[in-house]
Structure formats: structure tokens, C-alpha cells
Amino acid sequence: MIQAISQLGASCLANIAALGRASMMLAQALWFIPTRKLLRDIVRQLYVVGVLSLPIILVSGLFIGMVIAFQGYSILVDFGAETSLGPMVALSLLRELGPVVTALLFAGRAGSALTAEIGLMKTTEQLSSMEMMAVDPLRRVIAPRFWAGVIAMPLLASMFNLVGIWGGFLVGVEWLGVDDGSFWSIMGASIEFGQDIGNGLIKSVVFALAVTWVALFNGYDARPSARGISQATTRSVVYASLLVLGLDFILTALMFGS
């Protein structure tokens, strides 16, 4: 009994210590004046985390938009309100699904890769050898990946939204026969720039910070072994996904609550 309690306390303390290490890692990685070299590294990482994530983001955006249009139509048609399909698709994408699904996919597609890459760098002692050559691995390895993630995610989420709305248009208008004009005009009338698009962007920036941070820290903090890397990768995806969903609830309550 007493042992169980002390174990609980120990794991609590370990988690708090990990949070401290993660904050210190981020602070050290970002607290310096940006150089040209950093910019070049960011561009290279943007290719890895951004451009290579494009296919999965675009395809899932299209399908999610199409599914919402289907489901929405079958509900709205009962009330004779199928012309409201446009705002329904657009609002659910812009406010919720765009940022959240992009972040979840990003955690699975790019976050896991970041964790594995950095974990392997640590295991093969590349990070230590960088330190021996007086190169700060936090600045050369962590910082560009972090910024690349933060820049890439809002852009990916915007493309996801646009493709999703197009998918909703395809199913709703082209297939199910909702009126073309009212689909777009009611959508345009019911969406506000600040409330819907702005808040969606804020969400995706927050999610980007969370997902990239979790992924980088788990790689940096991985135990240097094959097992350690696999555990770190799993943990990175699980924690990042849970964090995104939890943060989404808090942000939604703050933005749309009152």
C-alpha cells in the first residue's frame, strides 16, 4: 500500500521533472538571435514536415469534407434546410475539424518522424559529437525543426479547410443537388473572418506549438536504445494527440463559450 503511494508520488515527480526539462530544452533552443544558417535549416525542415505532409492532409481534407456534406445533408433534408449545408460544412471545418484533424495527422505523419530522427541522433551519439565540436545541438537540430513545424501547421490547416469545403461542395451540389448559389452565398453570409477563420488559425498555431514541442522533447529525452526510440515515438504521438484534443476543448470554451 505504502509502496503504491510512493510509486504514485515518484511518477508524479518524474512527470513534473520532464515538464521542466522540456521547458528548459525549448527555452535554450529558441533563446538566441536568428542567423542566416537557421533560416536555411528551417527551409529544409519545412520541406520535410510541410511539403511531404501535403498529400495526406489534402486527401483526408477532401474525404472529411465529403463525409460532412453527406451526413449533414441527410439530417438537414429532414427539416427542408439543405441549403444550410454550405455553412454547416464550412463552419465545422474552419472551427473544429480543420485545426484538430490537421494537428492529429501532423502528429502522426511529421511528429513521429521528428521524434524518431532525434532519438536516433541521440542514440548514435550524434548530438554528443556535435557538442564536442562546439556546435549547440539545441540550436542546430531542435530550433529549425520547431520553427518549421509552427510555420507549416497553420498553412496545412488552411489547405485542409479549403479542400474540405471543396469536397463538401462536390458531394452537396454536384451529387446531392443542393442549389449552387445558395450553398456559397449562405456560407459566405454566415462565416465571419475574425470569429471563424481567425480563431481557427489561432487554434492551429497553438496545436502546432504543442505537437512540435512534444515530438522534439520526446526524441531529445529518449533513452538511447532501440527500445527507447520506439517508446519515445509512441509516447510522442499519444501525448501530442491527447494534448491537441484537450487544448481544443479549452480553446473552444474560451473562443465560442460565451
Binding site: L162, G188, I191
Partner: peptide, 27 residues
């Protein structure tokens, strides 16, 4: 080539945002 692809990616993202705010939001 890498820089070109990344530049295209960023442009595409910004264009998507612009279309969303101008066309979809009708603002």
C-alpha cells in the same frame, strides 16, 4: 529545387488562407 518546393508550399498555404477569407467568408 528544395527552396523552390518550400516556397511553393508556403505560397500555396497563404493562397488557401486568402481564398478562405475573401471568397468563403465573403469579407
Amino acid at each position: 529545387k528544395l527552396e523552390l518546393t518550400v516556397g511553393g508550399f508556403v505560397l500555396l498555404g497563404l493562397a488557401a488562407l486568402l481564398v478562405l477569407s475573401l471568397k468563403i467568408a465573403d469579407s
